[in-house]
Design a protein around this nucleic acid. Structure first.
Lengths: 219, 219
DNA sequence: TTATAATTTTAAGTGCGCTTAAATCTATTA
DNA sequence: TAATAGATTTAAGCGCACTTAAAATTATAA
């Protein structure tokens, strides 16, 4: 395909699929920060090219082709992130944007060589699994959002959403990174915010933030 | 600037400057494999943006800005080439095209980190010097094209032009790579071709090929 | 259920980087 | 020097990826 924009749409679609595997154009427009009209335009092209199932005024689905394409770009993205973080020591909150550019500019051969050099990492620095050459993604059933935890439960942070603006910078500030243990001190009904204990400190997380931090329960 | 095309034009201009620091549009069109009309179009934009000095029907010069921009892209290109070749073991004849894509998709910060990781290489895998952060390029006065050697002179291959289609693949086939010693056996007048001895074999190089292989004399 | 709000699409228009064809300018050479 | 070849520019047009504004459709809530 060799088209940066189409690649961006496909990954945005894949990243934002709902529980039945669909996305609405409006959400895409928000995520990609472009107008709804532009989205409509591109959906026609993606549909024409066989990457999505699309009918006027309906939600979008990826075709088999579209899904494997999207996963291949995610693979590229995540492998680059590992390289930038582990090999070059680039900071947590910068690697996503940098990888976003590189993912469109690297051959499969390069990605495979990089993967080998990095010794076949399983997750990227934000905890997302790296699809293998065939597009297979290790599933992580036990991974849940902080919002799903109950009062007094303890858990370990295993993933943070790298696709939300400024989230990583904020998390770094309040001392959250992968591997950290947290405990739910309280869940506030009126705004959905959650009070957690981390590193001995009490921190209040808004619902939006909490829903983008993922953990595994500690028994 | 953030514009792939303009970056490609600037490097193409820099790479093809003549002895008085100028290029003709026609040469650019050939190198970039596009029409002359497209070149004219872009020259207007590059001029508008202050990267080149351009007057209708005249040759093109780089401005100070244009030159430092071009050198920065060359820097990115060559550092990526070192990484692809040395770290990942990608083959000699593939790294140029791969780096051509990466050079447009990497921040200065990334390039600086890469340079550090690679321990500040001075030349790329084809023997071209790597501009430093300030755009300074080590000059290599003693480097000359094979065509400048006389009969019976010996020399060491120190650079090959990576910007000529299929040249590297061809050179690999006939056993030429950096560090190799050659000796001029004969220079043929009628077509400018040159007979050299390399690895114990006699090889005839066309004028075009010979003019793109660079050496340092051995006394 | 119907008014209103939100979403989505269409329409018209823009800048970009290209194309081909024709016009214009410059260089070569007879 | 005048004809011609070659280089360059202009003109018109195209697909891309966007925009805003208006129209059409769907969802929501009174």
């Amino acid at each position: 395909m060799e088209n940066i924009s189409q690649e961006d749409y496909l990954t945005a679609i894949f990243r934002n699929l709902d529980d039945v595997g669909e996305v609405k154009p409006n959400l895409l427009a928000e995520k990609l920060e472009i107008s709804n009209a532009a989205v409509t335009d591109m959906l026609k092209k993606l549909s024409r090219d066989g990457f999505i199932d699309y009918k006027k005024y309906k939600s979008i689905k990826l075709t088999t082709d579209g899904e494997s394409y999207a996963k291949n770009i995610l693979r590229r993205h995540r492998i680059w992130e590992v390289f930038l973080y582990k090999t070059l020591g680039m900071s947590w909150d910068k690697i996503h944007d940098e990888a976003e550019k590189l993912e469109h500019s690297s051959s499969d051969e390069l990605i495979n060589l990089l993967e080998e050099f990095l010794d076949y990492p399983e997750v990227d620095p934000h905890g997302y699994p790296i699809p293998d050459k065939k597009g297979k993604i290790k599933d992580s059933k036990s991974v849940i959002a902080i919002t799903e935890l109950n009062k007094n439960e303890s858990a370990k942070v295993v993933r943070v959403n790298d696709d939300v603006k400024n989230l990583l910078t904020y998390l770094t500030k309040i001392g959250i990174n992968l591997g950290r243990e947290i405990k739910i001190k309280d869940k506030l009904e009126f705004d959905g915010s959650i009070l957690i204990k981390i590193n001995g400190n009490d921190v209040n997380l808004s619902k939006k933030v909490a829903s983008n931090i993922f953990v595994e329960k500690i028994k």
